[in-house]
Design a protein around this nucleic acid. Sequence first.
DNA 1: TTAAAAAGTGCAACCACTACACTTTTGAAG
DNA 2: CTTCAAAAGTGTAGTGGTTGCACTTTTTAA
Lengths: 192, 192
Amino acid sequence: MTELGRRERKKLQTRQSIADAALELFMARGFDDVGVKEIADRADVSVTTLFKHFPSKEALLFDEDAEQEAALLRTVRDRPSGTSIPKALRDYFAAAAKGHADHPLFADFQQLVQTTPALRAYGHRMWMRHQEALARVIAADIGAPEDDVRCAALARFALEARDVIFDRPDRERAADEVFGLLEHGWAADQQS
Amino acid sequence: MTELGRRERKKLQTRQSIADAALELFMARGFDDVGVKEIADRADVSVTTLFKHFPSKEALLFDEDAEQEAALLRTVRDRPSGTSIPKALRDYFAAAAKGHADHPLFADFQQLVQTTPALRAYGHRMWMRHQEALARVIAADIGAPEDDVRCAALARFALEARDVIFDRPDRERAADEVFGLLEHGWAADQQS
DNA sequence: TTAAAAAGTGCAACCACTACACTTTTGAAG
DNA sequence: CTTCAAAAGTGTAGTGGTTGCACTTTTTAA
């Protein structure tokens, strides 16, 4: 594909070492007890450089979500025929929840985020950025206008559903109930 | 009820003059172009005092939402018999949207909030604080356990619906479509 | 009258973040 | 190989919101 020159390779390398340093320090001592200066030092980089790579302290933990969005859109676009959109999304989130429970490293990360207000808020905002793209894919799928209100609402609710579900002990069951609500409402509104 | 002594009256008075000063300055020159110092000066108060009354710069604009929450809960608890919960909430939001469009002062305020990222985020967070209370009222109403997942989901979605609706030109119609989705999903899940 | 509680003040500091002027590295064109 | 401009990185000095602290003033209640 795109051959990366030495320059861009080095750039990615510094970016990565900054992200690594941040992750280690945050996991060890918590988000609020680690200063930006300390992260920069550990990555052997100036604070100015750190902020040339990441727009904020919170952003140090939320990398690469282009892939995540693509996967989300695919679950709607490439779902098996006969499967409703809410059902497909339900399966996606259920699988994601399961995957997190398995990997203990990811569980620790998740816990750090959920217990730090600033991170929880930032993570949620980033996640919600997918709303518009998701809404467009849904609209395209059912042949509605690009800015259809119900499609926007379904996208919004489905994305919000993740947090509702993740807070529960039995996520499988929670996913069924929450998306059941969307499923029935969606089906009733659809004429075809 | 509670007789307020001179002390508490004065306290409320300073708090009010701070909020007033903030509102005027923000409306005139925008949130980001007004410093906290300037607000404190205009209210004839030290910066320290300002932060003893409000936890952050954003909080200066979002006062007293205890009344708002009470009204919200009432629309569910005291709704006419035969009216579903989503329908009652729909009417509440539609009425609120109409009320805002009428009062031009409120429209200006709304526009300031919506066009300032920091304020939009803060306002949303404050609004979402009502989720738990709303969920509890809904659960009580249908005789479900206090922490029922579907009740939590409905509360969350209904509160989120406000922003989905307010972004649209025809809010009345948008409210119908968005709450229609919740209405049908909710009805299908309810046995009684 | 008096003493404790609460409101307010000014100062110094912390921290995330930015503007700036600068050096160094790198890629590519001549 | 040279040269030159773009891009990456640096250090300093700031801004602005927010807090801790030690202090004075006001208010309440005993």
